[in-house]
Amino acid sequence: MSTPPAPSLKSLPAKPTGLRAAAQAAPGPAVGEPTGAARKGVPSAPRPDPHQADGRYPIAWLHISAPRGAVPTATSTCRCGRDRSAVGHTKVLALIDAHTAHRDTCPLRNHQEGRQAA
Rank of each mutant, 00 (worst) to 15 (best):
S2M: 04
T3G: 06
T3F: 10
T3S: 00
A6V: 12
S8D: 14
L9P: 00
K10Q: 15
K10P: 03
L12R: 07
L12G: 05
P13Q: 06
K15S: 12
T17A: 15
A21H: 12
A22Y: 14
A26Q: 15
P27G: 05
G28R: 13
P29G: 05
V31E: 08
G32E: 11
G32F: 03
E33S: 10
E33V: 04
P34A: 05
A37C: 10
A38T: 09
A38L: 13
K40H: 09
K40N: 05
G41W: 00
G41E: 09
G41L: 02
V42F: 04
V42Q: 14
P43I: 03
S44W: 08
P46D: 14
P48K: 12
D49E: 14
D49W: 06
D49I: 08
A53I: 07
A53E: 14
D54Q: 08
G55H: 03
G55I: 10
R56P: 13
Y57R: 06
P58V: 06
I59G: 07
A60C: 02
A60R: 03
W61F: 02
L62C: 00
I64T: 02
I64H: 02
S65H: 06
P67W: 01
P67D: 00
R68L: 02
P72K: 15
T73K: 12
A74T: 01
A74C: 06
T75E: 10
T77A: 10
C78R: 11
R79P: 00
R82S: 08
D83M: 10
S85N: 06
A86P: 00
G88Y: 01
K91R: 08
K91E: 04
K91H: 07
V92W: 01
I96H: 12
A98Y: 11
H102S: 01
H102L: 00
D104W: 14
C106D: 09
L108S: 11
R109H: 11
Q112L: 09
E113L: 11
E113A: 10
G114R: 04
R115I: 13
R115G: 12
A117H: 12
A118T: 11
